[in-house]
Design a protein around this nucleic acid. Structure first.
Lengths: 243, 243
DNA sequence: CGCAGTTTTGATAACTCTCAAAGTTAGTGG
DNA sequence: CCACTAACTTTGAGAGTTATCAAAACTGCG
């Protein structure tokens, strides 16, 4: 077990990483890539429930998801959490902590998950000398913002079915752009987390899944989702009318 | 009129700008500040309803609000808009467009508003040689993300009164941190825009204002707001219980 | 196999949306 | 300066959707 870890660890490098196109290495010359590679800490994989950082922790590192899924959430004063995002391979986590020097949310793994840890000050140093890295960092930041915009768009929807439909479509296109099936995939979050993310009650989400299934737009079995009528789902996402 | 514009224009520089501490100049040496200053385009002030950029426009510039207020909004396929943010002096707009090379939302002025236009490629160039500028840019970006997180937090709230209360508290602290009164300020947006931002119907927002006033937590007269019971407002923001 | 946690289903109540109309403000032109 | 219009805001009544409470069904795990 330890052996495989070590072997794996040796193999792990940005140059051989499967998500390099989504991540900081994109567009870098191999010499630059090595410099980036040297500052990356690759920790052993996390398991479900493990925490990358907690709210109020000092900010030192950015994290990039390599495999698995991470959720980030704010903890309200009243004990009510709000999930801020689900993060998939290639996503970068922790950007919102830079200006305050400490994290405002907690990051927790939803399944077996591996991440790369990027010491922020060293990233700053290196990026000074590698224009391409700086540009790629900006692109990724911009992409993260666009992703958060999609969350805002979801929460701005008035109807519950619109929210779920928009969420599923977004997930579908994210998977597709990463080379996975856009019609069949696994939800890595619980119904509770999903409901929280969508700003709905758990029961509503559950009912919506059964309703969507009755309407024939998707098959759900626990966390396995198969979209059987993409256009139907798009209609549910965009219109206020009932069918 | 033209004369005063010109005079004002001559006077405008980052070195003399009242919001420099919130903006890119923060922490820069004066030589660096001049370099930054030279790349900034300062256009004549915009008036209510003017548009900085539209969705799908090519991305070339970032904008910093100098005075006034800007709203950014997505236009849905179905014609339903969603306001993504209200932007005040010191706020930077357009970051989410970098990765795609084109804007995903439209930016419109809510009142007389002046902005600084920052050609992004030149900003990249200059920031290569000024570490402090790069760091400050990152901080501002991080601050913008945190601001969007607050919006997410608002939209995640289940009750309408929580949303409005959280919004008002956020506005209050933003004004306070900029040296204005935290208890008395003007809303620059219409009830319609506010309702949209909060994910509520206009009528609900209107009713909430009268209810808050009846409960004695604030005085509202059109767009003028005075918070008379900050703790009361905090309670409304945080708890589900009725009073 | 049994237990804890999660998910689904059901019934009810409450909140918010929608529709409708009156009241108000601001801007325009006589 | 006032009247008038258009846009915005407030208020009211009713319907609908979703949250809440409660309990059953299911899953995963020891």
């Amino acid at each position: 077990m330890l052996d495989t870890f070590n072997v794996e660890k040796l193999r792990q490098s940005c140059a051989s990483c499967s998500i390099q196109e989504l991540c900081l290495p994109a567009g870098l010359a191999s010499a630059d890539l090595e410099r980036l590679d040297r500052l990356v800490n690759r920790q052993k994989p996390f398991k479900r429930g493990d925490v990358l950082f907690r709210s109020a922790d000092a900010f030192n590192n950015l994290f990039v998801v390599r495999t698995g899924t991470v959720k980030t959430f704010h903890q309200g004063d009243d004990g009510v959490d709000q999930i801020m995002g689900f993060h998939y391979p290639g996503d970068i986590i922790g950007l919102d902590a830079i200006h305050a020097g400490q994290h405002a949310c907690t990051a927790e793994c939803l399944e077996h998950t591996s991440v790369c840890e990027l010491p922020f000050d060293r990233l700053e140093e290196v990026s000074r000398e590698i224009p391409g890295l700086r540009q790629q960092l900006m692109k990724i930041i911009s992409r993260e913002m666009a992703q958060e915009h999609r969350h805002l768009l979801i929460l701005g929807k008035r109807n519950a079915h619109e929210r779920l439909a928009v969420f599923l479509l977004g997930l579908s296109s994210r998977f597709e752009s990463r080379g996975f099936s856009p019609t069949e995939f696994q939800l890595s979050m619980s119904r509770n987390d999903l409901a929280n993310y969508l700003g709905l009650a758990v029961e509503t989400v559950s009912r919506l899944f059964t309703r969507f299934q009755e309407q024939g737009v998707l098959d759900v079995e626990r966390k396995q989702v198969r979209i059987t009528d993409m256009d139907g789902l798009r209609q549910l996402a965009g219109s206020h009318c009932e069918s």
